[in-house]
Design a protein around this nucleic acid. Structure first.
Lengths: 190, 190
DNA sequence: ATTAAAAGTTACATTAGTGTCACTTATATT
DNA sequence: AATATAAGTGACACTAATGTAACTTTTAAT
């Protein structure tokens, strides 16, 4: 009975993600997004009460997708292979790191009235849990130094995607160097 | 002949820095700053044409101060001591890292009419030059792995302050672990 | 005491975004 | 063909920030 929709959720999320990564939370506006979707601003309000709701929905979608991919790590045998898989996936989906950072920022501002808040708060934790069991395995196998805090190990790995490659070092060389530093450090004497 | 000023530049910069680090570039407003300085908004326009000018002035001030402290690195003998000094100074002035990131963001938005643009663009370069000669020394001394790109080494060190310490690991333990990872990595097998 | 001039304030016009509501349009079902 | 209904639009009132201009206040020098 209804008229055909001019856009679907996936299209909207893709545009929204671009806008968010480009302009940041504050620079992200319904006006802007509506323009890009070739639709009136008011139309967006048919689906989302405000930008907070849209952004939290988007983040839940993105993080769930990432978690889904991350779960594949369980299928791999041995810590070394898991480590490589993790690094590759993080560098394949660089955006997720920025979105997670943005999420922390957004969560802080949400009031408890937002129905998404609970769900959104759980996801980074779920991710940490996954990574944590990976870290644990690494320590049990004697691969990872046991005296280094788990949260620092996770933080270091996740943070490494954010190092700006100002001089455009080729991707593979860059990634391999990062893996080496994480594994063995940047100092020679061993 | 003139009336006494209600605030000086240093006070203004301190408040501005807090605001900027807390609210980000977009959340930083003259209204807000004026409130905190207990002064009318229009008064700020007596000294700065707009927030862009204020923020670029602030960044130049902060980065020059940081560079000044960084120069002390030359007085130290030996790469190891210089490395420790660098890590300590970076973790003592955590803000500078966030300000530099913000600076990159601000520079991108500046139009060439802004008189500060040139000056602001030079400062990160000057910093990189300093750090670069330190890296070079490390490589020449055989301390640093020579096949790892200089810019990655610098990036890794600078980025390490941004790892969120969610679980409030005590500062010294946190810093020492970071130094260890940077030096020798997080893997056991050597 | 007068006065020049910088310091500061109040009030206004402008801009860009928000959220809402009455309205129009398209389309599948009857 | 008629109609119910979801999709979409245009116009309105509201808010928060910007930048400017006319103004008042303070104070050191004459």
């Amino acid at each position: 009975m209804a008229r055909e929709r001019k856009f679907n959720t996936v299209e909207l999320f893709n545009e929204a993600k671009q806008l968010l990564l480009h302009n940041g939370y504050d620079g992200f506006t319904f006006s802007h997004l509506a323009d890009r979707m070739q639709v009136s601003r008011a139309a967006l309000y048919k689906y989302y009460e405000n930008k907070e709701e849209l952004i939290t929905d988007l983040m839940i979608y993105e993080m769930e997708e990432f978690l889904h991919e991350l779960k594949e790590i369980e299928k791999l045998e041995g810590f070394e292979k898991q480590f490589d898989f993790l690094m590759d996936i993080i560098f394949k989906k660089t955006e997720i790191h920025h979105l997670i950072k943005a999420a922390v920022h957004v969560i802080a501002r949400l009031d408890r009235s937002n129905t998404n808040k609970e769900k959104l708060e759980k996801l980074p934790l779920e991710m940490y849990t996954y990574l944590n069991s990976f870290i644990l395995k690494g320590k049990e196998d004697g691969k990872l130094k046991s005296h280094i805090p788990d949260s620092l190990i996770i933080g270091f790995i996740l943070q490494s995607v954010a190092i700006p490659n100002h001089f455009r070092i080729p991707h593979q060389e860059w990634l391999n160097s990062i893996k080496e530093i994480i594994r063995q450090g940047m100092f020679n004497n061993c």
